[in-house]
Amino acid sequence: MELTRRQMLVTSGAALASVAGLPAFAATADDMIAELTGGAALGEGAITLDTPEIAENGNTVPVAVSAPGAKSITLYADGNPVPSVATFNFGPLNPSQNASTRIRLARTQNVMAVAEMADGSWQMAKAEVKVTIGGCGG
């Protein structure tokens, strides 16, 4: 069939868009977690994750995480350009396996904590933090 100019433009446009629209290969939080745990099942209930419901400024968001008995806790922010945030490895002198810090959140998203427990099992906790655009001078 004869292609009209319009049809040509539409099809080539669509073709371009489908190629251009592909994001550069970027790992998601889930990808990173799977890599960390080797795809192991993630239990729930062992981690306490403390985040604000609304972050007054996404540049500095206080986060606290606790998992008694954990060897390490890794934090992720699933909506950040790079989802990994930090890993806390607890040494022999650490009595309580908890840590607090302040993180950057680019937008409303989930903060996730993944803990490797002493017996090698894995745990996860997740919390949504709303990040607002601020107001004046915000």
């Binding site: 609304i54 655009i133 601020g134 004046c136």
Partner: peptide
């Protein structure tokens, strides 16, 4: 009141210089 998502204060300056989370 709220101006967009910001809770408006009285604009007092008793705490300046202030550490603003925005600019850290």
């Amino acid at each position: 009141n709220m101006i967009r998502a910001d809770h408006l204060s009285q604009g007092q300056i008793n705490g300046f210089p202030t550490y603003r989370l925005k600019q850290a």
